[in-house]
């Protein structure tokens, strides 16, 4: 039995018998794995007596759940109106090119995930990127990336 299955069974057991706990269960699973592994979802559906479709429907309703593993560094390019006006399209294209990832993709070594998001509420800083939940002005994506990579190397040195 895979780890996802065993862990999920334990998580579900903790909540079973209570009402309205599905999101908590999913949150705990994501907390463990960083995303919602398909085998885990099957266990939840089976044990909680909901269909897999309903479970995915519910989970996908919340933007905070992920269905595939995510990179160590998550880059979210804002595509809101203000950022759009300030050239977010170009920013996304640049990241995409540099990382070799399309929007929504994660690099195979799980180092980067590239995403496009709606207005993150910091329009004054447009064009905005969020890197692991920190907000930056992405006037020069190349520079940002270089800094990131350097930071990563430093991490590894330690």
């Amino acid at each position: 039995m895979s780890e996802a299955v065993t862990v999920t069974r334990e998580i579900v057991a903790k909540y079973k018998g209570r009402e309205g706990v599905l999101t908590h269960i999913l949150q705990d699973i994501q907390g463990r794995f960083g995303y919602l592994p398909p085998e885990a979802m099957e266990v939840v559906a089976e044990e909680m007596g909901v269909s897999l479709a309903e479970l995915y429907g519910m989970a996908s309703f919340y933007a905070r759940f992920y269905f595939a593993p995510r990179g160590k560094t998550v880059i979210k390019v804002c595509r809101g109106t203000a950022c759009h006006v300030r050239g977010s399209e170009r920013v996304l294209a640049k990241f995409s090119e540099e990382l070799g990832l399309k929007e929504g993709e994660t690099s195979p070594d799980l180092s980067f995930t590239l995403e496009a998001v709606n207005c993150v509420g910091c329009c004054a800083l447009a064009p905005v990127v969020m890197i692991n939940e920190k907000v930056f002005t992405a006037s020069d994506p190349g520079k940002l990336l270089a800094a990131l990579r350097q930071g990563e190397n430093r991490d590894q040195d330690h």
């Binding site: 398909p38 979802m41 479709a53 309903e54 995915y56 429907g57 996908s60 309703f61």
Partner: peptide, 15 residues
Amino acid sequence: DFMKRGIETRVGTPL
């Protein structure tokens, strides 16, 4: 089921 929400809502199968 319906997947996602708002303007992105669409019908789909799991994953």
